[in-house]
Design a protein around this nucleic acid. Structure first.
Length: 382
DNA sequence: AATGAAACCAACCGCGCATAT
DNA sequence: CATATGCGCGGTTGGTTTCAT
C-alpha cells in the first residue's frame, strides 16, 4: 500500500485537526468506501468524525462521486457520448451536473474537463465549437464571445429569439412560467432537439467533412444503452409507431408544450402540498430500505429521481412525491421528447446506480408503466 | 534523447441553496 | 427570523502524461 503526502496531523495546541489536501491515498479511498458501505452516502462531514480520515466533507463527497462510487465509467468518451455532450452543451451551457445526469456513469468533472479541453483546442484552431446545424443558445454566445480575429465565425451569429423558432422545440414562451430547465431560461431563446440533431447532423457525415470532430472511437463498444424516463419513453413509443415525419413532430410538439404547461401547473399544485420536509423524510426512509424497494432491473436506490412507488406511502403521498420529483428534472426529459431512446437519461446525478439499473428494455418498461393504446395515460398528452 | 507545448486529470475553492437549530 | 450546517455546482488551479519538434 502506497501512502504518500503528509497525512493527517494535528496542530498540537488546540487539538484542532489539520485537514489534509492533495491526492488521495489508497488507504484513504478504502476508508472512505468502507464508510459509505456502512453509513451510506451523505453526511460527509461525519466521515472525519467516524474515521481517521482528515479530509473535509466536501473533499470526501467529491472523491466518492468522481472516483469511488460504483459504476463509474472510466476511459474516453464514446462518439455517442461526445455527440450528446455537444448537443447538451448547446442547450444547457455550462451546466455540467445536468449534462452528467444525461450520461450515466460520467461525472460532471469529466464532462467539464472534456469540454474545456475541447474549447481550448477549438478556439486555438479557430474552429466552431458546434457543428453547423447546432445553434447554441444565447448563453453560449455570452460565454464564449466570438474572437475578432477568427475568420470563419466559430459560433453562429446571435439569432434574436423573437425572430427564430427552432424547428422542433418551441421558444420559452410556450413553456411554463417557471423555468424547469436552463434551456428555457430567459437567456436561452431556443434550443436544439436530438431528433433535429440526428436528422441534420449525422455524426458520420459530419466527421467525414470535419476532421476535427473525428474523435476517439476506441470505446465505442462500451456504449451503454441509456435508460428512459417515463415521459420520454411513452412519447417515443408513440412517435415510433408509424410515420414520424417532421410535420407530425412539430404539430405534436406544439400541442405537447401547451399541454405540458397545464401539467406543470398541476404538478406545482401537487408539489405545493408536499414540500421539502416531507420529501426529505421519505427519501430517508427510502435510503433505509434501499435494498428492498425495487425489484428486477432496478437495483439502485437512494436516488431522488425514482418514479416508482414507495412502500408505506399513501397513494397521495406517492403521487406527490413523484410529481415533485419529476418537476425538477424529469420534466426536462418530457420536453426532450424527440430523443432517441439511446440518448435518454436515467436522470440520476450523484446517486449510486448500477449499470444494470440503467438498462431497461421496452418490455420491462412497459410492465412498469403500461401505456394505453390511445396514449391517454400520459399526463397532459392526448 | 531532450525539451517545450498541449492535453488530460484530480482536486480545491467560493458561492448559493435548502434545511435544521 | 437569524444563524449554522450540509451539500452541490461551476470555476479554477496545478500536477502528470502525451505528443511534437
Amino acid at each position: 500500500m502506497i501512502v504518500y503526502g503528509g497525512g493527517a496531523s494535528e496542530d498540537g495546541g488546540g487539538g484542532r485537526v489539520v485537514l489534509k489536501k492533495g491526492p488521495w491515498t489508497v488507504a484513504e479511498d478504502e476508508t472512505l468506501a468502507a464508510y459509505v458501505r456502512e453509513y451510506g452516502e451523505g453526511n460527509w462531514n461525519a466521515v472525519q468524525k467516524k474515521t481517521w480520515l482528515a479530509r473535509c466533507g466536501k473533499s470526501c463527497r467529491l472523491r466518492w462521486a468522481n472516483h469511488l462510487r460504483p459504476n463509474l465509467r472510466k476511459g474516453s468518451f464514446t462518439p455517442e457520448e461526445e455527440r450528446l455532450i455537444i448537443q447538451l452543451h448547446s442547450q444547457l451551457g455550462n451546466k455540467w451536473a445536468r449534462m452528467a445526469a444525461q450520461l450515466p456513469g460520467r461525472t460532471d468533472n469529466e464532462i467539464k474537463n472534456y469540454w474545456n479541453t475541447r474549447l481550448k483546442r477549438f478556439q486555438r484552431q479557430g474552429l466552431p465549437l458546434y457543428p453547423p446545424d447546432i445553434s447554441p443558445s444565447n448563453h453560449q454566445q455570452q460565454m464564449y464571445p466570438q474572437q475578432p480575429n477568427t475568420p470563419s465565425s466559430p459560433l453562429p451569429s446571435p439569432t434574436p429569439a423573437s425572430s427564430f423558432t427552432f424547428p422542433l422545440l418551441q421558444p420559452p414562451s410556450l413553456c411554463p412560467k417557471r423555468c424547469y430547465n436552463t434551456a428555457f431560461s430567459p437567456k436561452a431563446s431556443y434550443t436544439s432537439s436530438p431528433t433535429f440533431l440526428n436528422t441534420h447532423f449525422p455524426l458520420s457525415s459530419y466527421q467525414s467533412t470535419n476532421p476535427v470532430y473525428s474523435m476517439k472511437h476506441e470505446l465505442s463498444s462500451n456504449h451503454i444503452p441509456f435508460s428512459t424516463s417515463l415521459g420520454v419513453y411513452q412519447v417515443s413509443k408513440f412517435l415510433d409507431n408509424g410515420d414520424c415525419n417532421q410535420n407530425l413532430n412539430t404539430s405534436l410538439h406544439t400541442n405537447t408544450c401547451q399541454l405540458l404547461e397545464d401539467l406543470m401547473e398541476e404538478a406545482e399544485a401537487l408539489a405545493d402540498s408536499f414540500r421539502a420536509p416531507k420529501r426529505r423524510q421519505l427519501m430517508a426512509a427510502l435510503q433505509d430500505n434501499n435494498n428492498n424497494f425495487f425489484s428486477g432491473s432496478f437495483g439502485h436506490c437512494g436516488s431522488s429521481n425514482n418514479l416508482f412507488p414507495l412502500q408505506g406511502l399513501t397513494p397521495k403521498e406517492d403521487e406527490c412525491l413523484q410529481m415533485n420529483t419529476m418537476q425538477d428534472e424529469d420534466i426536462t426529459k418530457l420536453l426532450d421528447w424527440g430523443s432517441e431512446s439511446e440518448e435518454i437519461s436515467n436522470g440520476h446525478s450523484s446517486a449510486i446506480t448500477t449499470e444494470d439499473s440503467l438498462v431497461l428494455d421496452d418490455h420491462q418498461f412497459a410492465l412498469l408503466f403500461p401505456v394505453d393504446d390511445d396514449t391517454n395515460n400520459l399526463p397532459g398528452i392526448c
